[in-house]
């Protein structure tokens, strides 16, 4: 689905990603883990062309997208739910969803306006509210709903449950599981290691811009020292 090789990214003089290899198979759920500031968000942005990597390659479904515009990379079948949720202060909930609507790269429209509202009934009650007038949890639902409206094959979630109340968090995880069941691949960045161990097919741990672990949940569960060392649990 997505394959990044030897990515090096800099912010000015500071070298943030040190030659990262990262891939996601079709339908696979990958957890991207690491402490604060280790480069998780930067890796996502580098793959999407939001930040330009200095060297390395990114391919999506076998097609080289290195150096392409963000919008063109995204249209290869990716949906991105950024940190901070990316609400538009002057658009209503309804407009957030309608403006994003698009058939998938395979032409399918599995995710319609109606289906997104069924998935997030709370949004259906707030259709005429402005995006920024929603609670944090509702904004997150809207950001995910808006991403689904593009009928992606790969959903990227950066800190989707950060700062949310436990009940809302549970709702969001519930939806993420349901999305996984539909066969959409995903990359999930989250602080909640417990849920990720249970949910993801594969786990990648970053330390200072390098991959220190790439494997299934079994090793992480049986050898707790890995998580202790790299995540600090």
């Amino acid at each position: 689905m997505l394959h990044a090789t030897a990515l090096h990214t800099y912010y000015g003089a500071s070298h943030v990603l040190h030659g990262i290899d990262f891939r996601v198979a079709k339908g696979e759920t990958v957890a991207l883990m690491g402490r604060n500031g280790m480069g998780k968000s930067t890796l996502l942005k580098s793959m999407l062309g939001i930040v330009a990597p200095r060297s390395g390659k990114v391919a999506i479904l076998g097609r080289d997208v290195t150096g392409m515009e963000t919008s063109a990379v995204i249209r290869q079948g990716i949906a991105y739910v950024p940190e901070g949720r990316g609400m538009f202060h002057n658009l209503t909930v309804r407009e957030h969803l309608l403006m994003a609507a698009r058939a998938g790269t395979d032409g399918r429209r599995d995710w319609t306006y109606e289906r997104v509202l069924e998935t997030f009934p709370r949004l259906a009650e707030r259709l005429d509210n402005l995006g920024t007038h929603l609670s944090g949890g509702e904004q997150q639902m809207l950001s995910i709903g808006r991403a689904l409206m593009t009928n992606p094959q790969l959903l990227i979630l950066d800190e989707a449950t950060e700062g949310l109340a436990p009940l809302i968090r549970r709702d969001i995880w519930h939806v993420i599981r349901a999305i996984k069941q539909t066969g959409i691949a995903s990359i999930i960045v989250d602080k909640n290691v417990g849920v990720l161990l249970d949910l993801a097919d594969r786990h990648v741990i970053l330390v200072k811009g390098e991959v220190v672990y790439d494997g299934g949940p079994e090793t992480l569960k049986s050898d707790s020292s890995i998580l202790e060392r790299h995540i600090g649990l």
Binding site: S71, R75, Y80, G86, F88, M99, R146
Partner: peptide, 25 residues
């Protein structure tokens, strides 16, 4: 219209518009 929504969204957060796959250029 959707075009109008994109225009308004672009005024609010153009990077997010691009991140939704809309050709901002």
């Amino acid at each position: 219209t959707r075009f109008g929504m994109w225009v308004r969204a672009g005024a609010s957060n153009r990077d997010m518009v691009a991140a939704l796959g809309i050709n901002v250029k």
